[in-house]
Write a protein that binds this DNA or RNA. Structure first.
Lengths: 347, 347
DNA sequence: GATCAATTATGAACCGGTTCACCGCAGTTT
DNA sequence: AAACTGCGGTGAACCGGTTCATAATTGATC
């Protein structure tokens, strides 16, 4: 019978008084401690329902040392792929009683370090994050000193941290092989920052495919530090203006396809006829563009699920002492954006 | 001189002991209390730096009653538009020392109520959320009892809560007028759940434009509860199969354009030739599709900024007692997806 | 009926900060 | 020299739970 009219704030002590028991007993009821009689349990539960008692998680955290909060810090979470990942992870955490705490790192080591300190002060139980530079000593130390399990998202081995990664190497190699197989020799590649795993792997995959085919890479066609659509637009424009322009574009950086497509349109080049195009990540845009854009795909929801599950296991101490790494496979979704080079634009 | 080697966990009491002062004094130094001598302040600061002391926010929150956490609960945050909004809001909060706590409501009143209770237990300082049904009594009561400022995201008036909204009415009316002006009379409309403000306003805008033009609405062409791309695909397929199929589609629901485009492609209908098309929200896909899809646009980053700022002011008690509402304007971005009806498909 | 063991409830200490009534001490005042 | 100010620092209470040593109760045994 709930008759509460939102009195100030009901505390455990109030419940104890109402039920005529000690505060410790109410706590034991709340925590389903087996050393409590059914009669007492019922009496206390009645008082709880009657007063509309809600536990104060802050107080609980202070004493217990565990906050049931997980932090997620990601480069930039309005990248649709990341959003899908986080959404799945949040679902898993929520279903397991954990609350997600979200921050953008804006890809800056200083922010990453500051966030790690802030998470520590908040006593989160676990952290899931991307970092901008695996070689940054300050960030590496901050990670090592975190004091709670950290899971790296799509990043290289650091210390003994768990990781979920994507087989960007395989994806990029397959994409490059596809272009090479169609006769392309001057392939432009747009990637993000080589200080981080994904871009590094993509370039390695690209190089591996070229090397296997005996094709030399023109360093002028490899553009790095392409982080957003504006960057992609600019670099694509520049590449198209080269005297010896590429016949194919591998737009490998995350969520940058739009920028390249705008540049191609601005200069009147038609995808699939004037230039070939492969996107480094799949999207509605890649699928529905005319012609459909060949793209590298992997399961982001599954990635989020696995990441959350791995971190939960680690936080519960159920994980083995060794660090674990999960590598998600990629597939190349072939659409109509790549065609064999015509005589006109062959070297 | 920081020489810490990560000893267990440095507490305020340790700092006090190292500096040879009382714990209260250290606290006063940390909180920049003016009643502390420069000499003592310096001595304490040295001890803090030396020990690498980090404040425990949980303990601070327990005593202070404020957690510096803001919760954001949104229908489904892998909708790109919401991600942009949240990203901006998070930036503002972070810059002001607040941490964002994020959850999906999955558009279910039960989850919304559970989340509000969870936020209360966590003692968040403010809440920003969408709700699935403004008429739901349980949710309304939970909102009223929240005990902390709540800001509604793109929702109708509930109690005296602050709100940021979008002029969906104006946007939908403009879109409809555009289609009517081109001669379309059988216009299909796909919207989300009418229990929530955005879809309701869109339908009202649609009706207003039709009424002003003296055009009767065929109820069979108004499809509601279109929440994702699968729904949009199904409804678009169904509408195209009608004996008297619509000549124009107003795909008003958020992030559902892809579903409709897939259906059109599946049935071999070409946008801008066989059917006209308007999207209820703008995106890369709408802009870069061939032909470009006319769409309703508004500034999501600005919306996030305003929302965060309004909530911050409310939390600090700087806001007026009356509830505030901000309505963002929409513009219709006209592209090539709509054309005059040809003789063949005119009623 | 007394003794012992097992079970259940108690309440005080504790988590790590913040706050505030109070105290010591130096500088004025009479 | 006694009394008065007032600044600066102290330390204990407090926030709201959890935990555990201890007490009380019950039940079984002799």
């Amino acid at each position: 019978m709930s008759t509460q009219a939102k009195p100030r704030q009901v505390k455990l002590r109030d419940v104890a008084q109402a039920a005529g028991v000690a505060v410790g007993t109410v706590s034991r009821v709340l925590n389903a401690n087996p050393t409590v009689t059914e009669a007492v349990r019922r009496k206390v539960q009645a008082a709880i329902d009657d007063l509309g008692y809600e536990m104060d998680v802050v107080a609980q955290s202070l004493r217990g040392g565990t906050t049931k909060m997980v932090a997620c810090a990601i480069r930039d979470f309005d990248i649709p792929q990341f959003a899908t990942y986080i959404k799945e992870a949040e679902r898993i955490f929520r279903e397991n009683g954990y609350t997600l705490l979200l921050s953008s790192t804006t890809n800056q080591p200083d922010v990453e370090m500051a966030l790690l300190r802030a998470f520590e002060r908040r006593r989160v139980d676990g952290i899931m994050m991307t970092i901008s530079d695996e070689g940054h000593a300050g960030v590496a130390r901050a990670l090592a000193e975190a004091g709670v399990p950290v899971l790296l998202i799509d990043r290289d081995h650091i210390g003994t941290l768990d990781r979920v990664t994507v087989d960007h190497f395989g994806g990029a190699r397959a994409a490059t092989q596809h272009l090479l197989g169609l006769g392309h020799r001057r392939i432009a590649m747009l990637v993000g920052d080589l200080k981080a795993f994904p871009s590094r792997s993509r370039v390695e995959g690209f190089r591996a495919a070229c090397a296997a085919a005996g094709v030399a890479i023109d360093p002028g066609l490899l553009r790095e530090r392409v982080l957003d659509q504006e960057d992609a637009f600019r670099e694509t424009m520049a590449l198209l203006s080269l005297p010896d322009a590429p016949t194919a574009f591998f737009v490998a950086a995350m969520d940058t396809l739009g920028g390249s497509l705008r540049a191609l349109r601005a200069l009147g080049r038609e995808v699939g006829r004037d230039v070939a195009l492969v996107a480094g990540s799949d999207s509605d845009l890649a699928e529905l563009y005319s012609p459909g854009v060949t793209a590298i795909r992997w399961n982001l929801a599954e990635m989020g699920r696995h990441a959350a599950t791995m971190l939960l296991e680690r936080m519960r101490g159920e994980a083995p002492a060794t660090s674990r790494a999960l590598k998600l496979p990629t597939t190349l979704v072939i659409r109509q954006s790549c065609q064999a080079v015509t005589a006109g634009n062959r070297d």
